[in-house]
């Protein structure tokens, strides 16, 4: 993952949509296919939407960052879910004063 800075290979993936059976199974299977390692999952209902947030390590992933992002968004659409993926640093910078680390 040459595209990532500071050796950090962790990304945050969000899945938003209507709650239904099998969402976690679906995205876990998808990520496993690319050897992306899920480190933590939290899910909640926020503003009437099912919201799942995952920390995923792409250190051993066999897909480029950009391609995975597109794959998640595209596959998500078919499931009627909105899936986004951003580097963890984005959230550190935006929400922590010491974001530069």
């Amino acid at each position: 993952m040459s595209a990532l800075e500071k050796g950090g290979s962790r990304v945050i993936i969000t899945v938003l949509g209507k709650d239904k059976v099998g969402i976690i199974a679906w995205i876990s299977t998808l990520l496993a296919r690319y050897n992306a390692n899920i480190l933590d999952i939290s899910q909640t209902i926020l503003q009437e939407f099912f919201t799942m947030i995952m920390v995923v390590d792409l250190a051993g992933a066999n897909i480029e960052f950009k391609d995975l992002r597109e794959e998640l968004a595209g596959q998500g659409k078919m499931q009627e879910m909105k899936v986004t993926m951003q580097h963890e640093d984005v959230f550190h910078y935006m929400h922590r004063i010491e974001g530069g680390r």
Partner: peptide, 10 residues
């Protein structure tokens, strides 16, 4: 990060 922080950014 809290879910609110993450969703705010997204």
């Amino acid at each position: 990060f809290s879910p609110n922080e993450i969703l705010e950014t997204v």
